[in-house]
């Protein structure tokens, strides 16, 4: 279980990571998830290299039926990341969506 204090500590840094663009370095689709993520399975997880060179992990969401591949461009967005804990704190974090062709 994640302490609500830990969730708060993590969430303080989210705003620095929002609205950033980058490309997919590698990706997977998770079918068997841990309990807190089971409800969302199957879901995509990507490792992204931001334009700044920094790397982030996140789920790739808001998909229609696009074929995912390494090198695709993505943008970081704010989403709920796991089911609320017993203390009722909703954990928000970074996810990604595909950038449409400019």
């Amino acid at each position: 279980m994640i302490s609500p204090v830990k969730i708060w500590r993590r969430q303080r840094h989210i705003k620095d990571q929002l609205g950033k663009t980058g490309k997919i370095l590698t990706w997977t689709k998770i079918y068997i998830a841990a309990k807190e993520f089971k409800k969302n399975a199957p879901y995509y997880v990507v490792m992204v290299e931001l334009d700044s060179g920094r790397r982030l992990y996140g789920q790739l969401v808001d998909l229609m039926d696009e074929k995912i591949s390494i090198g695709m461009k993505v943008e970081s967005i704010l989403r709920k990341v796991r089911q609320p804990s017993q203390d009722g704190v909703i954990a928000y974090g970074i996810k990604f969506k595909l950038l449409k062709d400019e």
């Binding site: 590698t26 997977t28 998770i30 068997i32 998830a33 841990a34 997880v45 490792m47 789920q59 990341v81």
Partner: peptide, 12 residues
């Protein structure tokens, strides 16, 4: 936090 599991990390 991203929902990765060990199979997921090796899948990456």
């Amino acid at each position: 936090e991203s929902g990765l599991t060990f199979p997921g990390i090796y899948a990456l």
